[in-house]
């Protein structure tokens, strides 16, 4: 039986939660941000339904606050020393390389163990060595040998999915690396097309303007001036965002579409990369144009489409899952990772 995922969050409802969260965060000088995060996550998880039941987020705010405090201290230390003594950069890079596997692993694990569906929690179990291979060794390889980027991407995806479990049953994904290469090839071609389009547009505008200028220079008419550097930067930024979203959506479709859950269940993801790209780009424009006030509506809009394109092909009535016994996890790794903007999801 196939169960589609559905997202029931509403823009105005989340807007009110968000704006109150931001105001309280500002008034408490950032301390409330941990509680704000928990409420936000609960709202999004709690409005995501699968087979008539919503997901749930269980993290405790004070744990997140602790992690955030540590992350802030590290961030300040890093920034100050990077500005004042660039020599220390090497030390920070080594420190990050050593801490990264631990950060990645605890961030993903914290999220998994604090997520439940129908009273059963998710879990994530990976060794430090596996995290080290996937996130340090393969990241370095991908950065130094560009053609291996899609290969490293597949290693990250395998690391993420294949160590997740639900009620003691493992998720597993498996697909040919050729398909990841194909997606990256599309992305590469799209970037080339984008650059060509921008150059062509700039050329067209400039020649049109020269023509207009020659033609109109005899009449008192304000010259049309365009801010080329800003226009080009905005076109590149938005175009790049579109391509990045496009590629990410195709990769997610590939990874999730090939994921199975022990017991004969399988997952599906069929979001249109064009549609997601459009939503993300227009969300960005609207958020900027409204000084950030569209942000909550943007998140709801994206979640509605994105979540609605996931599905589960279940082999049973899903009534026979039970949680593993789990130890309490610390949020510190997750929050440090979150603070430095290291996304490890799909």
């Amino acid at each position: 039986m196939t169960h589609a995922v559905a997202f029931h969050g509403k823009g105005t409802e989340y807007f009110r939660i968000w704006i109150v969260n931001v105001a309280l965060t500002v008034m408490t000088l950032g301390i409330y941000s941990a509680w704000a995060k928990v409420r936000t996550q609960r709202y999004f998880y709690g409005n995501t339904y699968l087979a008539g039941h919503s997901f749930e987020y269980h993290a405790k705010a004070w744990r997140i606050l602790l992690g955030r405090a540590i992350a802030l201290v590290l961030l300040v230390g890093y920034t100050v020393s990077a500005i004042l003594l660039p020599v220390t950069m090497g030390m920070w890079i080594l420190l990050l390389a050593a801490a990264l596997p631990w950060l990645v692993r605890s961030a993903i694990r914290f999220n998994a163990r604090n997520t439940s569906w129908r009273n059963v929690r998710f879990n994530f179990q990976a060794s430090f060595f596996e995290a080290f291979m996937a996130y340090v060794v393969w990241s370095v390889v991908a950065v130094s040998v560009f053609p291996l980027i899609p290969y490293a991407r597949r290693i990250h995806d395998y690391f993420y999915v294949n160590h997740h479990s639900f009620g003691g049953r493992k998720f597993a994904t498996d697909f040919s690396v050729g398909r990841t290469y194909l997606i990256y090839l599309y992305g590469f071609l799209a970037i080339v097309a984008l650059l060509v389009a921008i150059i062509a547009a700039a050329f067209a505008i400039i020649s049109a303007q020269t023509y207009l200028h020659d033609f109109l220079s005899h009449i008192p008419f304000p010259a049309i001036t365009l801010d080329y550097p800003v226009l080009t930067a905005v076109a590149l930024g938005l175009g790049g965002l579109f391509v990045a979203t496009f590629v990410a959506t195709m990769v997610t479709n590939l990874v999730i579409g090939n994921t199975t859950l022990e017991g004969g269940h399988s997952l599906a993801s069929n979001a249109s990369p064009w549609r997601v790209g459009w939503i993300v780009v227009s969300n960005t424009v609207l958020t900027l144009a409204t000084l950030g006030l569209f942000y909550p509506f943007a998140r709801i809009r994206l979640a509605r489409y994105r979540m609605g394109r996931y599905a589960l092909h279940a082999a049973s009535d899903l009534d026979d899952f039970t949680s593993e016994a789990l130890a309490q996890q610390s949020a510190i790794g997750q929050e440090i990772a979150g603070f430095f903007d290291l996304g490890f999801g799909l």
Partner: peptide, 8 residues
């Protein structure tokens, strides 16, 4: 980052 809380 502090105010929005969710850089990612």
């Amino acid at each position: 980052a502090l105010v929005t809380g969710d850089v990612s």
